[in-house]
Design a protein around this nucleic acid. Structure first.
Lengths: 106, 106
DNA sequence: AAAAAATACTTGACCTGTCGTAGTAATTCT
DNA sequence: AGAATTACTACGACAGGTCAAGTATTTTTT
């Protein structure tokens, strides 16, 4: 199980990656993360929704209501141009961070 | 410059790595980090000393006073067996985390 | 048709690690 | 003696994550 401190800096990046191709919503994003990591990372619901709020506040995503439902009505999120720029920047930062960390890992 | 959120989970690991071969103290650890990362990561003093306290509280390091001084008397830190075990565990965790994160990085 | 389960989200209080600011302590350099 | 350097310490603020609990709406089961 991955500790929250090592993934903390990447939650926003992960969400933006999953919104890159098409708009999505909380439950689906959550499932995709679980599946893509083969259960190695399961994001907490509260973490996810507070990340959505932060990302929207910062202008990296926008929200709208969807029509189809299998339960309560969904809030969908779509990535903005600013969001794409931010994502690319975070990816570049990742490669630097990786090099830094690996100097201290055996 | 690396954001604190992406390095947060590794500060303890970095410190333990630098104490692996021999005991050391705050100022020296700080310099080594700066040098080894070619200024890409400069740990804040307060972050470093609070990490020392945490690590000692958890039994991963022990402290003692040194004799030589070039200023105020130094508090040296030495890694414990538990600390070495914890470090190894964190390294294994890193490899898992790395795989997870890289699924979401272009 | 009522109850249970699943989907989808919200609220609020709390915890941990980092950071900014400031100050203290002791030694060496000028 | 005063300034600079080394080496810490204290404290409050803040951001992001977490726990616990609750709400809302639909689908499935009994």
């Amino acid at each position: 199980m991955i500790s929250s401190d090592v993934i903390r800096g990447y939650n926003d990046t992960i969400i933006l990656y999953l919104l890159w191709e098409e708009a999505s919503y909380g439950y689906e994003i959550s499932k995709k993360i679980r599946e893509m990591t083969r259960e190695k990372y399961i994001i907490k619901e509260t973490t996810l929704y507070s990340a959505f709020n932060r990302l929207e506040k910062n202008g990296y995503i926008t929200s709208f209501f969807g029509n189809e439902t299998n339960g309560r009505r969904r809030t969908y999120y779509r990535i903005t141009e600013e969001g794409r720029r931010y994502y690319r920047q975070k990816c570049e930062e990742y490669h630097v961070t990786k090099e830094v960390i690996e100097r201290f890992i055996r």
